[in-house]
C-alpha cells in the first residue's frame, strides 16, 4: 500500500517539476483568488457581526428642550414608554452627559464649558428591534418637550449597503479569480497529460488501473490548489494582523476578532486542495482517454 502511494506521489512530483512555470501561474492565481475571497469573506462577516449587534442593541437618543420641570419630565418619559416597541427609557442628565463625554475624551480641554454645559438632558430609549425605529422616532419628535431624536439608522443603512457591495464583489472578483485559477490548473494538467502522453499510453498498454493513470494527475492538481491555499492563508493572516494593529492604534471599531493563522491555513489549504482536485478530475476525465 505504502509502495503504491509512493509511486503515485513520485509520479505527481515529477509532473510538477516538469511544468514549473505553469504550476507557478496556477498556484499564484489560486492563492490570489482565495486571498480575495478570504478577505472579502472576513470583512463581510465583520460587518454582519456589527449589524446584528446594532439590531439587537438599538437605541434612540432623545434630546429634551431646556428648562423642563419635574412634572413635564415624568409625563414625557411615561409618554415615550407607552409607545409600542419601546422597552425602556433611561434619563441622562446634562451633567451626566458632560461627564461621560469628558471621560471618553480626556485629551479635549473642557474647562471653559464647566460653567456653561452645552449638553442637553436626554433619554436613551431602548427598542425591541430596529424595524419600527423610524416610526417611533417620528412619534417622539412630535412631542413638544422634545428637541431632537437621533438614531443609528444611517450607520445601519451604510453597513447594509457595504454588505451588499461586498457580497457582489466577492462573487464577481473572487469568483472570476477562482475560475481563472481553475482554468490554469486545468491547463497545467492538460499540459502534463500532453507531456506524459507516452507514459500514459504505456500504462494503458500494460494494463495499469485507472487509478494509477489518473491518480498522479489528480494529486498534482490537489497539490497546486493546496499550495495556493497555503499562500493565501499566510497572506491573509498577515493582512488581518496589520489591519487589527491599525484599528487598535486608531481606536476604531475596537480592533478585530483575531483568527488564528493555524485555522486559516487549515481552512484555505483544504479548500485549495479540494478545488485543485476538482479541476484536475475535470481535466483528467476529458483528456486522459484521448492521450
Amino acid at each position: 500500500m505504502l509502495d503504491r502511494v509512493e509511486f503515485l506521489i513520485s509520479e505527481a512530483w515529477s509532473s510538477l517539476r516538469r511544468n514549473v512555470w505553469m504550476t507557478f501561474a496556477a498556484v499564484t492565481t489560486v492563492a490570489m483568488a482565495l486571498y480575495i475571497l478570504g478577505s472579502l469573506g472576513f470583512v463581510y462577516t465583520f460587518i454582519s457581526g456589527h449589524l446584528s449587534k446594532l439590531n439587537q442593541d438599538f437605541k434612540l437618543s432623545v434630546f429634551l428642550v431646556d428648562g423642563l420641570d419635574e412634572e413635564q419630565m415624568q409625563a414625557s418619559e411615561a409618554a415615550i414608554l407607552a409607545i409600542p416597541g419601546v422597552t425602556s427609557v433611561d434619563f441622562v442628565s446634562k451633567d451626566q452627559a458632560f461627564l461621560t463625554f469628558q471621560e471618553a475624551n480626556p485629551d479635549i480641554p473642557l474647562d471653559d464649558f464647566k460653567n456653561d454645559n452645552p449638553f442637553p438632558d436626554s433619554y436613551e430609549v431602548q427598542l425591541e428591534g430596529i424595524e419600527k425605529a423610524a416610526k417611533i422616532a417620528e412619534s417622539i419628535e412630535e412631542m413638544e418637550v422634545i428637541d431632537e431624536v437621533r438614531d443609528a439608522s444611517d450607520l445601519r443603512r451604510l453597513l447594509v449597503q457595504s454588505q451588499s457591495i461586498l457580497r457582489l464583489l466577492g462573487v464577481v472578483t473572487g469568483g472570476l479569480m477562482l475560475l481563472t485559477g481553475g482554468v490554469l490548473i486545468y491547463n497545467t494538467i492538460v499540459l502534463t497529460i500532453y507531456a506524459r502522453r507516452k507514459e500514459l499510453s504505456i500504462m494503458k498498454l500494460v494494463g495499469a488501473a485507472r487509478s494509477s493513470i489518473s491518480g498522479p494527475l489528480i494529486i498534482e492538481g490537489a497539490v497546486q490548489g493546496a499550495i495556493g491555499g497555503l499562500l493565501a492563508a499566510l497572506l491573509l493572516s498577515l493582512t488581518l494582523q496589520s489591519v487589527d494593529a491599525m484599528a487598535r492604534s486608531l481606536n476604531a471599531l475596537g480592533g478585530i476578532e483575531p483568527t488564528s493563522t493555524k485555522t486559516l491555513v487549515l481552512i484555505l489549504t483544504l479548500c485549495g486542495a479540494f478545488y485543485g482536485m476538482i479541476c484536475s478530475i475535470w481535466a483528467v476525465k476529458r483528456q486522459v482517454e484521448r492521450a
Binding site: R4, K198, S201, I202, G207, A208, S212
Partner: peptide, 21 residues
C-alpha cells in the same frame, strides 16, 4: 516501440511493472 527515452532499459520495464501495481 514506445520506450521512454529518458529512462534506462531496466527502468522502462520497471516503470511498466510499477504501473500495474
Amino acid at each position: 516501440f514506445a520506450l521512454l527515452p529518458n529512462r534506462r532499459v531496466w527502468e522502462n520495464v520497471g516503470y511498466a511493472l510499477r504501473a500495474i501495481g
